[in-house]
Every structure is written in structure tokens, then in C-alpha cells.
Amino acid sequence: MEHIISLSIENKFGSLSRVAGLFSGRGFNIESLSVAPTLDPSISMMTIVTTGEERIIEQILKQLNKVIDVIKVVDISESEYVERETALIKVHTRPEDRAEALRIADIFRANVVDSSPTSYTIEVTGDVPKIQAIINLLQPLGIKELVRTGRVAMGREPTRTASAQSRPLAKVN
């Protein structure tokens, strides 16, 4: 089953390789990984999408907690969360397709961020099904290039009670 793990980590030399190395060294799977500094420049947030049975996920969470540079680990997918991914899609457009490309972008509330006589570059943000849907629709026109950021996610604030919070793991080594 898919899990989205959010972790805060020291923003310093080698931190990313400690996390990446943990996954490769123990044969854990990484579907996607994104990382960037937080408001505190000494800390980065990392969002890792991974898959595995419960036992494996438990090990992944514990092993991540054990990494000394890791400050906090949360399995976001344990409870309600929002997730987003951004894709840049460069579509090949023949003159007769240009209007169709713009229409599709419009439907998905995507932006055209670059244009040339034979192509549009479309920026789209959303959850994975949405991005997959626009890719499917643009594919017949001809996708020249595609880059995706990987997913970022955040736990939802409770709307009624405080019970459904994502559960942070106690930091233990």
C-alpha cells in the first residue's frame, strides 16, 4: 500500500544521501521524493512516497527516525491529508491543434508558461489523477517533454474534532 511520509531533516551536507542511502541499502522502495528548505533555513522538509506492507512501512518509519539528521517523521497518509504535484508538459502543436491544447489546459486550470510556433509548455498542479488525466488528453497531440516535481503533502487541520490528526511518531533512537 502507498504511504506518504513527511519528514523534517537538517538542511546540511549529506542529509539527503543519508535518507536515500537508507532506502537503497535496505531495499525499500521510493516512488517519489521532494525536498526543499522550510521557513527555518536550517531545516528541510522532505516528502517521500513509498509502498510496502505494514511491517515494511513500520521499519521505514523507525529507520528514518533513527537517522540522526532526521528531526521528525510523520506518516501523512495515516489520516486526512492534501497532496499536490506540479508538472510541466511541452506539447507539440500543429496549427490545427493549438486551440485544442489551450482548451484542455483551460479545463484543468493549467497555465501556458511558454509558447513557440510549434509548441506550448503547460504548467499544471493537482493530485496525481488530475495530472495523469491531462497527460492522457494531451498525449494524442504529442508530448515532447514532461517533468514532474514529485508529490508534496500536508496533513489536514481538523474541521470538527481534534481526533483525526495525523499521528506523529515519537522521536526515539
Partner: peptide
């Protein structure tokens, strides 16, 4: 004091 390391 290492913020990511506090053994139980």
C-alpha cells in the same frame, strides 16, 4: 544537544 537524536 542534537535535535534529531535523543535516545529513549
Amino acid at each position: 544537544s542534537i535535535r534529531g537524536y535523543s535516545p529513549t
